[in-house]
């Protein structure tokens, strides 16, 4: 099929950047969205132009590297799907597709469609872990975890750190990402001792990084490829309230 693309091109962090139109032809509908961009890049290199930079690695929806805003939707039109898992059969011949990077102050553009998401790592550094020095652990069966808690913890832990939630949030908030981790660890008995310091630390790091505040609009969850629900945000809020009252 033949497609018109409009892609955000930006040479570097300091560059202003703009949308640039391209036309490409002969795209198979079995190709993935990123494979379509591979084809475009081969074409650009052949023409002596700079290929479009975009992040990707696993191409199977788990590493969280791929991160494209496609026609104004984080990871494109298909629900519960990362950009790399989106396939061209979602489109028809002659379509125009706009491709932009995640837009957030906390995710500055590095080049073209590549952004810097290290602010997520800094949120984790501020408490997104359970302190368990290697070799000190008791037997794995020492602490049973009720299955519903373990399952809920898993569902929250399924977050791939892609940042689509931030990209989709009208406030540019990192709430869903942060809350998914708070919920995962807070649902496990192992996570209880640090539960309060964790949430205070992470929220402070989140705000420090320049993410916006959450006003519960729910765009994040709708864009999340791992379907992380808004209940994790509720959990974070409840934990935060308790922790803040205790600290006060």
């Amino acid at each position: 099929m033949k497609l018109r693309l409009r892609i955000w091109r930006q040479a570097g962090a300091e560059d202003k950047g703009k949308m640039v139109p391209y036309v490409i032809d002969g795209i198979s509908e079995d190709a993935s969205f990123l494979e379509m961009l591979d084809v475009l890049n081969e074409q650009l290199i052949a023409e002596g132009e700079d290929p479009v930079a975009f992040d990707h690695d696993c191409r199977e929806g788990i590493c969280g590297a791929c991160s494209l805003m496609i026609d104004g939707q984080a990871h494109g039109p298909q629900g519960a799907t990362t950009t790399c898992q989106l396939h061209m059969r979602q489109y028809s011949d002659g379509d125009t597709i706009d491709i932009e990077p995640w837009r957030a102050g906390a995710f500055p553009v590095v080049k073209d469609l590549v952004v810097d998401r290290s602010s997520f790592d800094r949120i984790i550094q501020a408490g997104g872990y359970i302190s368990a020095p290697t070799g000190t652990a008791p037997d794995a069966h020492a602490v049973p975890v009720p299955k519903p808690d373990a399952d809920a913890a898993f569902s929250a832990a399924a977050c791939i750190g892609c940042g689509a939630c931030v990209a989709a949030c009208p406030n540019g908030s990192g709430m869903l990402f942060m809350a998914a981790k708070v919920a995962h660890l807070g649902l496990m008995p192992q996570g209880q001792p640090e539960r309060h310091t964790r949430v205070l630390g992470m929220v402070a790091a989140h705000d420090e990084a320049g993410f916006g505040g959450c006003t519960n609009t729910g765009e994040c969850s709708a864009a999340c490829p791992k379907e992380i629900g808004l209940d994790v945000i509720g959990r974070l809020n409840a934990d935060f309230r308790k922790a803040a009252t205790r600290a006060a």
Binding site: Y129, I130, A132, P144, V145, A150, A153, F154, H184
Partner: peptide, 22 residues
């Protein structure tokens, strides 16, 4: 065996049975 202990202590959400065990 130590690996599993270590990972559980870190909060890795392994699949569990209704009794709460792995």
């Amino acid at each position: 065996t130590e690996i599993i202990d270590q990972c559980v202590a870190q909060g890795v959400p392994f699949a569990r049975e209704y009794g709460g065990l792995l």
